[in-house]
Computed example of a mutant assay.
Amino acid sequence: MQPTREINPFLKSALEFGPVLIFFIAYLRLKDRVFTIGGTEYDGFIVVTAAFIPLLILATGALWALTGKLSRMQVATVILVVVFGGLSVWLNDDRFFKMKPTMIYALFGGLLLFGLLRGKSYLKYVMEEVMPLQDAGWMILTRRLMFCFFALAVANELIWRNFPTETWVYFKTFGLTAAVFAFFMTQGKLFQTYGLEKDQTKE
């Protein structure tokens, strides 16, 4: 197995979030344009989506090459972007790409639910090194994050189905990220109550 390597945090952030920001900026510049390719007209959103797919693959591949590791969430995101983004470009229908966040959050929420039904916290396997917690704390955090993921899946469906594409782009770029960040920021009491010192995790 390839060992995990540390890289410059700014480079890591650029590879993780750069493609999404580039998508956002490109959409704002091309949203009102129509491109004729091979006799078929594509609006700016579809063209930007077509460019976003290889960009995300390259950025994720570079991250893997530099660090030697990708999270399951990163791998799943790339797969779903390729599938749903590819369908949007192929069928010239932006609805498939807009469904992608719904699928991602529903998938992760479902995986956490499956683990909880088995009496396990799959979140612990992913984040234990970053946030050492007692087992009871992991179960509570997993349950809360599961509901958060399902809520974000529902929110994405409501936004893309009922609001203009530009509103959805803003929501996807900033709203979803801010929601997850806000979720963890509100869990301070749980981390304080169930947190473990790092030396305790090694015992």
Results as ranks from 00 to 15, higher is better:
F114M: 13
I104T: 15
T142I: 06
T186E: 03
G39A: 12
L190P: 02
G188F: 01
A178W: 12
S121P: 15
L141Y: 06
G18P: 12
K189I: 05
D32G: 14
G85C: 05
L123F: 07
F96Q: 11
V126L: 07
R143T: 10
A51E: 06
N156M: 02
T167G: 09
G85E: 06
I53E: 08
T49Y: 02
Y170S: 04
F84C: 05
F184I: 02
A178Y: 14
T102V: 11
S71L: 05
I46G: 11
G109R: 10
I57H: 00
P3M: 00
V81F: 05
F174G: 08
A65F: 03
C148E: 14
G119P: 15
A155C: 03
G85T: 06
G86E: 08
V48C: 15
A136M: 06
P19E: 11
E197V: 04
L56P: 06
D93F: 15
A76V: 01
G195V: 05
I37T: 14
K124L: 03
L21W: 14
T193A: 12
T102I: 10
V20P: 08
L111K: 01
W64S: 00
A106P: 08
A65L: 04
E128R: 08
E203H: 15
S71A: 10
L141Q: 14
F17I: 04
G195Y: 01
F23Q: 10
L196S: 03
Y170A: 07
F24M: 05
D199Q: 15
A182Q: 02
L63A: 01
E16Q: 14
G18C: 12
T186C: 09
Q200R: 07
I79V: 15
Y105W: 10
F52Y: 10
A76Q: 00
L58M: 09
G38K: 03
G61Y: 07
I7E: 00
K202L: 15
T40A: 10
Y105L: 04
W90D: 09
F45D: 02
V180I: 12
V82Y: 08
V20L: 13
Q192F: 14
L113Y: 13
A153N: 00
K69N: 03
G61S: 15
V34D: 11
F52G: 00
L116G: 02
V47G: 07
I46P: 12
A151R: 06
L30N: 15
D94V: 13
N156V: 04
F183Q: 08
E197A: 09
A151G: 09
L70W: 00
L21G: 10
E203A: 14
G68E: 05
A182W: 06
M127T: 03
G44Y: 13
L66R: 03
I22C: 12
T36V: 13
A76H: 01
F52P: 02
P132R: 06
